[in-house]
Simulated scan of single mutants.
Amino acid sequence: MLRSYIRLVLFALGLLIGVQVPGFITDYAQRIEAHRLEAQQALEGFRKTATQFFGGDLDRLVAHYRASDDPVFQNDADSIGVLMRRDQMLERQWQAMQGPWYERIWHVIAEANPVILQETWAGYRYQVVLTPESIGWGLACAFLLSWIIESIALALAILILPRRKSRRLV
Protein backbone atom coordinates (compact mmCIF):
# COMPACT_ATOMS: atom_id res chain seq x y z
CA MET A 1 0.00 0.00 0.00
CA LEU A 2 2.83 2.42 0.83
CA ARG A 3 4.32 1.69 -2.56
CA SER A 4 1.08 2.78 -4.24
CA TYR A 5 1.07 6.06 -2.32
CA ILE A 6 4.68 6.71 -3.24
CA ARG A 7 3.78 6.13 -6.89
CA LEU A 8 0.88 8.59 -6.60
CA VAL A 9 3.09 11.21 -4.94
CA LEU A 10 5.75 10.82 -7.65
CA PHE A 11 3.11 11.09 -10.34
CA ALA A 12 1.64 14.23 -8.73
CA LEU A 13 5.10 15.75 -8.36
CA GLY A 14 5.88 15.07 -12.02
CA LEU A 15 2.52 16.55 -13.00
CA LEU A 16 3.16 19.73 -11.02
CA ILE A 17 6.65 20.10 -12.49
CA GLY A 18 5.42 19.46 -16.00
CA VAL A 19 2.69 22.09 -15.94
CA GLN A 20 5.37 24.68 -15.14
CA VAL A 21 7.30 24.15 -18.39
CA PRO A 22 5.06 26.13 -20.78
CA GLY A 23 4.73 29.01 -18.32
CA PHE A 24 8.49 29.23 -17.85
CA ILE A 25 9.10 29.12 -21.60
CA THR A 26 6.53 31.91 -22.07
CA ASP A 27 8.16 34.01 -19.35
CA TYR A 28 11.59 33.55 -20.97
CA ALA A 29 10.21 34.56 -24.38
CA GLN A 30 8.57 37.66 -22.87
CA ARG A 31 11.84 38.69 -21.21
CA ILE A 32 13.70 38.24 -24.49
CA GLU A 33 11.15 40.40 -26.28
CA ALA A 34 11.30 43.11 -23.61
CA HIS A 35 15.09 43.24 -23.73
CA ARG A 36 14.99 43.22 -27.53
CA LEU A 37 12.62 46.20 -27.63
CA GLU A 38 14.78 48.04 -25.12
CA ALA A 39 17.92 47.41 -27.21
CA GLN A 40 16.18 48.62 -30.34
CA GLN A 41 15.06 51.76 -28.54
CA ALA A 42 18.63 52.39 -27.32
CA LEU A 43 19.88 52.23 -30.92
CA GLU A 44 17.07 54.35 -32.37
CA GLY A 45 18.94 57.66 -32.27
CA PHE A 46 22.02 56.11 -33.84
CA ARG A 47 19.87 54.50 -36.52
CA LYS A 48 18.42 57.91 -37.41
CA THR A 49 21.92 59.35 -37.68
CA ALA A 50 23.04 56.37 -39.79
CA THR A 51 20.00 56.81 -42.05
CA GLN A 52 20.64 60.51 -42.48
CA PHE A 53 24.37 60.26 -43.24
CA PHE A 54 25.23 56.65 -44.13
CA GLY A 55 22.20 55.19 -45.87
CA GLY A 56 21.05 53.44 -42.70
CA ASP A 57 24.29 51.47 -42.26
CA LEU A 58 25.20 51.43 -38.56
CA ASP A 59 28.52 49.73 -39.31
CA ARG A 60 29.56 52.71 -41.43
CA LEU A 61 28.54 55.07 -38.62
CA VAL A 62 30.68 53.10 -36.16
CA ALA A 63 33.60 53.10 -38.62
CA HIS A 64 33.24 56.87 -39.00
CA TYR A 65 33.28 57.32 -35.21
CA ARG A 66 36.35 55.08 -34.91
CA ALA A 67 38.19 57.00 -37.64
CA SER A 68 37.63 60.28 -35.80
CA ASP A 69 40.53 61.91 -33.95
CA ASP A 70 38.17 62.80 -31.13
CA PRO A 71 38.50 60.24 -28.27
CA VAL A 72 34.85 60.86 -27.32
CA PHE A 73 33.70 59.66 -30.75
CA GLN A 74 36.06 56.67 -30.56
CA ASN A 75 34.61 55.75 -27.17
CA ASP A 76 31.08 56.14 -28.53
CA ALA A 77 31.98 53.78 -31.37
CA ASP A 78 32.72 51.07 -28.81
CA SER A 79 29.44 51.80 -27.00
CA ILE A 80 27.44 51.62 -30.22
CA GLY A 81 29.21 48.37 -31.12
CA VAL A 82 28.16 46.85 -27.79
CA LEU A 83 24.56 47.98 -28.35
CA MET A 84 24.57 46.54 -31.87
CA ARG A 85 25.90 43.15 -30.73
CA ARG A 86 23.32 42.99 -27.95
CA ASP A 87 20.55 43.91 -30.38
CA GLN A 88 21.68 41.19 -32.79
CA MET A 89 21.93 38.58 -30.02
CA LEU A 90 18.47 39.45 -28.73
CA GLU A 91 17.04 39.34 -32.26
CA ARG A 92 18.46 35.81 -32.72
CA GLN A 93 17.04 34.76 -29.35
CA TRP A 94 13.66 36.25 -30.22
CA GLN A 95 13.59 34.52 -33.63
CA ALA A 96 14.37 31.19 -31.97
CA MET A 97 11.43 31.69 -29.60
CA GLN A 98 9.04 32.14 -32.55
CA GLY A 99 9.36 28.52 -33.72
CA PRO A 100 7.31 25.45 -32.78
CA TRP A 101 7.14 24.30 -29.15
CA TYR A 102 9.90 21.70 -29.45
CA GLU A 103 12.33 24.28 -30.92
CA ARG A 104 11.51 26.73 -28.13
CA ILE A 105 12.10 24.07 -25.49
CA TRP A 106 15.39 23.01 -27.05
CA HIS A 107 16.49 26.63 -27.37
CA VAL A 108 15.84 27.32 -23.68
CA ILE A 109 17.62 24.10 -22.65
CA ALA A 110 20.65 24.41 -24.93
CA GLU A 111 21.04 27.95 -26.27
CA ALA A 112 19.36 30.36 -23.87
CA ASN A 113 21.12 33.52 -22.85
CA PRO A 114 22.43 32.69 -19.36
CA VAL A 115 21.82 36.16 -17.91
CA ILE A 116 18.23 36.35 -19.15
CA LEU A 117 17.63 32.72 -18.17
CA GLN A 118 18.79 33.54 -14.63
CA GLU A 119 16.52 36.61 -14.62
CA THR A 120 13.62 34.41 -15.65
CA TRP A 121 14.36 31.87 -12.88
CA ALA A 122 14.63 34.66 -10.32
CA GLY A 123 11.35 36.27 -11.35
CA TYR A 124 9.35 33.14 -12.14
CA ARG A 125 6.25 32.53 -10.04
CA TYR A 126 4.95 28.99 -9.97
CA GLN A 127 1.50 28.70 -11.43
CA VAL A 128 -0.90 26.05 -12.57
CA VAL A 129 -2.33 27.15 -15.89
CA LEU A 130 -4.49 24.42 -17.38
CA THR A 131 -3.99 24.91 -21.07
CA PRO A 132 -3.82 21.83 -23.32
CA GLU A 133 -0.07 22.40 -23.66
CA SER A 134 0.41 22.52 -19.87
CA ILE A 135 -1.71 19.42 -19.35
CA GLY A 136 0.31 17.55 -21.97
CA TRP A 137 3.59 18.58 -20.40
CA GLY A 138 2.30 17.71 -16.95
CA LEU A 139 1.20 14.22 -17.93
CA ALA A 140 4.39 13.56 -19.89
CA CYS A 141 6.60 14.65 -16.98
CA ALA A 142 4.48 12.71 -14.50
CA PHE A 143 4.76 9.48 -16.47
CA LEU A 144 8.46 10.01 -17.13
CA LEU A 145 9.34 10.79 -13.51
CA SER A 146 7.27 7.85 -12.24
CA TRP A 147 8.82 5.47 -14.76
CA ILE A 148 12.41 6.59 -14.04
CA ILE A 149 12.05 6.36 -10.25
CA GLU A 150 10.26 3.01 -10.46
CA SER A 151 12.96 1.65 -12.78
CA ILE A 152 15.75 2.81 -10.48
CA ALA A 153 14.01 1.32 -7.44
CA LEU A 154 13.46 -1.97 -9.26
CA ALA A 155 17.09 -2.11 -10.42
CA LEU A 156 18.34 -1.41 -6.90
CA ALA A 157 16.01 -4.05 -5.47
CA ILE A 158 17.34 -6.63 -7.93
CA LEU A 159 20.95 -5.75 -7.11
CA ILE A 160 20.61 -5.43 -3.34
CA LEU A 161 17.99 -7.95 -2.29
CA PRO A 162 18.95 -11.59 -2.65
CA ARG A 163 16.65 -13.79 -4.63
CA ARG A 164 14.61 -16.22 -2.66
CA LYS A 165 14.89 -19.82 -3.68
CA SER A 166 11.56 -21.26 -4.42
CA ARG A 167 10.60 -24.28 -2.43
CA ARG A 168 9.53 -27.31 -4.24
CA LEU A 169 6.85 -29.33 -2.75
CA VAL A 170 7.62 -32.97 -3.05
Rank of each mutant, 00 (worst) to 15 (best):
M1G: 12
Y5I: 12
I6R: 08
F11K: 09
F11M: 10
F11S: 11
I17L: 14
I17E: 13
V19S: 02
V21D: 11
G23K: 07
D27S: 12
E33I: 06
R36K: 13
E38Y: 07
A39C: 08
Q40Y: 00
A42E: 15
K48D: 14
A50F: 05
T51A: 09
Q52S: 08
F53I: 03
G55S: 05
L58Y: 02
L58N: 01
D59Q: 11
R60T: 06
L61A: 04
Y65T: 07
R66L: 05
R66P: 03
R66H: 04
F73C: 04
F73M: 15
Q74K: 10
D76P: 03
D76W: 00
A77V: 01
G81A: 00
L83Q: 02
R85S: 02
R86Y: 00
R86F: 00
M89W: 09
R92G: 01
W94S: 10
W94Y: 08
A96P: 04
W101Y: 15
E103F: 08
W106N: 13
W106C: 00
W106T: 09
H107P: 02
V108Y: 00
V108H: 00
A112W: 05
P114K: 09
L117P: 05
E119A: 05
E119F: 07
W121H: 12
R125T: 11
R125K: 09
L130N: 00
L130S: 01
P132D: 01
P132Y: 04
E133C: 06
S134Y: 02
I135T: 03
G136K: 02
G136N: 02
L139H: 00
A140S: 13
A142Q: 04
A142T: 00
L144F: 13
W147P: 07
W147I: 13
I148T: 15
I149C: 10
I149V: 15
E150D: 13
A153Y: 08
A155S: 15
A155G: 12
I158G: 10
I158N: 14
L161T: 06
R163L: 02
R164K: 14
K165G: 04
S166D: 08
R168N: 12
L169E: 08
